[in-house]
Nucleic acid binder design. Structure first.
Lengths: 228, 228
DNA sequence: TGTCTTACTAGCCGTTTGGATAGGTGTCAA
DNA sequence: TTGACACCTATCCAAACGGCTAGTAAGACA
């Protein structure tokens, strides 16, 4: 295993002072190198540290006090810890702005991330090289940055009186995970020490929240959103 | 929009002759830059073209005749076209080796890719920086490269007498997609102009192939595998 | 203190599903 | 021609699911 945090290896310094200092948190080397390369070559910024876990990201921000933290919410098993991290960074290091760089585009997650202090949300597959630097610069200056599609997505979500944008409770996510593993309500009930009726109830709520008609659709949406 | 194909912009040439020439096909700029950066800086290879679509990848291979094509199967809406592309490249340009660099790790897709001519299969989230260069070199020299986890995955799959490694038919995928949209068997039957019994039949087959107990699990596995 | 809201729990009843089995067609290659 | 394969249809019955209604516990707020 690589170590979780690695310090700046000093690739091509250009402007000596007042450079935007960035920490990148992503488990994927290729992405880290790509971001570093784009920001350092084209945008004249400095990637001062990289992290591949939530803890490491927190440590890195603590140690380097960067202007911007670029984070992929998908660092561990579930997205919830990434969201938690946004909260924590905002709380403990308010000077560091957070730019989420996500793999998936899910209304629910975008809204959660913004609610918990993220200053921007870009989708990896959609960003162009120059947009990354611009996005970092913009969040650094206090703007909120939403990538192509992200803005309209949440506008749409907020427009609809209710439904899709609501967050799932931990219990609901547990139930959905179990459903995705092919367990029956009875089995889920046993696993979670609740009655079968309760399992059904949770599923009904999630289908409303996710605007899904059946459990299979719930699982599909939750999987696509990276929740399970 | 960027153009689909862009020629080598000549970043840092080092060894003048006999360098491994690579074409990268991935819709994600960050990944492309990351791969280019890793291969050119650390492995002394040349990325001679980038592509962001299947057609462009084919064109680029035709035009540049690279030693290795690095491809993300997830270039378009579904993975099937990426698999088709492996077949086509192997067929028309046998001198170009194919290294699949995937987001997801699915037994079925790994096996399909190898069956259709891919020479290696690495998982983006698992590769370390040096492994990428080594992998490219290895496939170029005729080896088959399977990333961490990939090998054991398919070994496991081949070990089990039957089941998981079988490929889904187009009809089966259509049915699964519909299930993932929350349709009932009856609705699916109407949509596909077949009887409800047939829908159930297809689902029974897919659950055997995917080794899933219920439709929700089928959808989960198929979604996670990028099939729907 | 009373009222609201939210998460969680539960039972009832009709519909949908899954599993096992047993067939039918058309196509393609050995 | 004979398989092999994808695709289609059907029936039976137990099990699972979805929709509805309703109660409890905890926290927020006026």
């Amino acid at each position: 295993m690589d170590s979780d945090v690695r310090a700046d290896v000093g690739l091509g310094r250009r402007s000596p002072t007042a450079r935007t200092r960035v920490v990148v948190a992503d488990r994927n080397v290729i992405t880290r190198v790509g971001i570093r390369s784009i920001l350092e070559r084209n945008a004249g910024m400095a990637v001062v540290a990289e992290a591949t876990s939530y803890e490491a990201a927190l440590d890195a921000v603590d140690e380097h006090g960067p202007d911007v933290l670029i984070i992929d919410l998908d660092l561990g098993d579930d997205t919830t810890r990434g969201l938690k991290l946004c909260e924590e960074i905002t709380d403990r290091f308010p000077a560091t702005k957070i730019l989420v760089l996500a793999n998936t585009l899910s209304e629910m997650i975008v809204i959660e991330a913004l609610r918990r202090g993220a200053n921007g949300y870009l989708c990896k597959d959609d960003v162009k090289a120059d947009e990354l630097g611009k996005g970092v610069r913009a969040v650094q200056e206090g703007d909120t940055v939403l990538g192509r599609g992200v803005g309209s997505l949440i506008a749409h979500g907020l427009g609809s009186t209710r439904g899709s944008a609501e967050r799932l409770t931990t219990r609901e996510i547990e139930v959905i995970k179990a459903v995705g593993q092919g367990l029956s309500n009875k089995q889920i009930a046993q696993e979670l020490f609740i009655s079968e009726s309760t399992v059904k109830f949770h599923l009904q709520n999630t289908s409303k929240k996710l605007n899904a008609k059946r459990r299979a659709e719930i699982v599909h949406k939750a999987t696509a959103a990276g929740l399970i």
